[in-house]
């Protein structure tokens, strides 16, 4: 379970950023996320939709404890992200589309590294690694340097790294950005599998096709503010336009 309660995040502006904001902007800070509250339930996929720069990544980074909220509270798997960040991180898997891998390690070493950081028992780790490598077809390149793998192979290794410690909560931050159709589909499949396993899944995207494919719950974020938060069914039922994309643009424009 993920619970966000009136979460805000402000960033101090550098001189250069201030200049870029124009002469009209007088403050020293910018609110990247403002007063955002929502809940992600286990066994459901929560989709966070918003245009670029809406605050999706900042929100997910706060959930993953990389950033601290300026105000408000976040609880992940029962732990407060500020008070118990290590416990939170032990319970999450985090995957982004731009996630890099250590090119000089092999998939086996890479996955072991994260298993060790998660304090996994050796026997449990081996069993889980073998299962994941079988499911994802990693075995044939498990001992090759990651730098020599194709994009698709790398993404499979990323997935294995995300899931190796069997996290209760999985965070996907625009996981399909820049990937081909086949690799994107394997990510979507992973998200669905995570849901079936009863995990709490939060997924951010700006690709509307993906929203309709997997969402159980939907939130729309724009300029750091939450504009919509309900079930996907509700969203479809109350649409005033013909497509999800049009409805999304209408909500953004009305804000």
């Amino acid at each position: 379970m993920i619970v966000l309660d009136k979460v805000s995040k402000k960033f101090r502006l550098s001189k250069k950023q201030k200049r870029e904001m124009g002469n009209g902007y007088k403050g020293n800070f910018i609110w990247s996320v403002s007063d955002v509250s929502f809940k992600c339930q286990p066994g459901r996929i929560f989709t966070l939709v918003g245009p670029n720069g809406a605050g999706k990544t900042t929100t997910l980074r706060m959930i993953a404890t990389m950033l601290k909220p300026s105000s408000g509270k976040i609880r992940v798997a029962g732990y407060d992200t500020v008070k118990n960040p290590e416990h939170v991180r032990k319970n999450i898997g985090f995957l982004t589309g731009s996630t890099g891998l250590y090119a000089r390690l092999t998939p086996k070493e890479f996955v072991k590294y994260y298993a060790d950081l998660n304090g996994m028992d050796e026997a449990i780790f081996k069993k889980r690694r073998d299962d994941l490598f079988d499911i994802l077809d990693i075995n044939e390149f498990a001992n090759r340097r990651i730098g020599k793998l194709s994009t698709g192979m790398k993404q499979k290794v990323s997935i294995a790294r995300t899931m190796i410690h069997d996290p209760d909560v999985v965070i996907f931050d625009e996981p399909t950005v820049g990937l081909d159709v086949i690799t994107s589909r394997s990510i979507i499949q992973l998200i669905k599998n995570s849901k079936e396993m009863g995990k709490t899944v939060i997924f951010s995207t700006h690709i509307m096709g993906e929203v309709s494919l997997i969402s159980d719950d939907l939130a729309i974020i724009h300029k750091g503010k939450l504009l919509y938060n309900s079930t996907y069914e509700n969203f479809i039922a109350h649409m005033k336009t013909g497509t999800i994309e049009d409805e999304f643009i209408k909500i953004i424009k009305e804000a």
């Binding site: 993953a64 404890t65 250590y102």
Partner: peptide, 14 residues
């Protein structure tokens, strides 16, 4: 640059 720092920061390591 290689975008590997993020994954390390979300590991349980302090």
């Amino acid at each position: 640059e290689r975008s590997t720092l993020e994954t390390l920061l979300v590991s349980p390591a302090k």
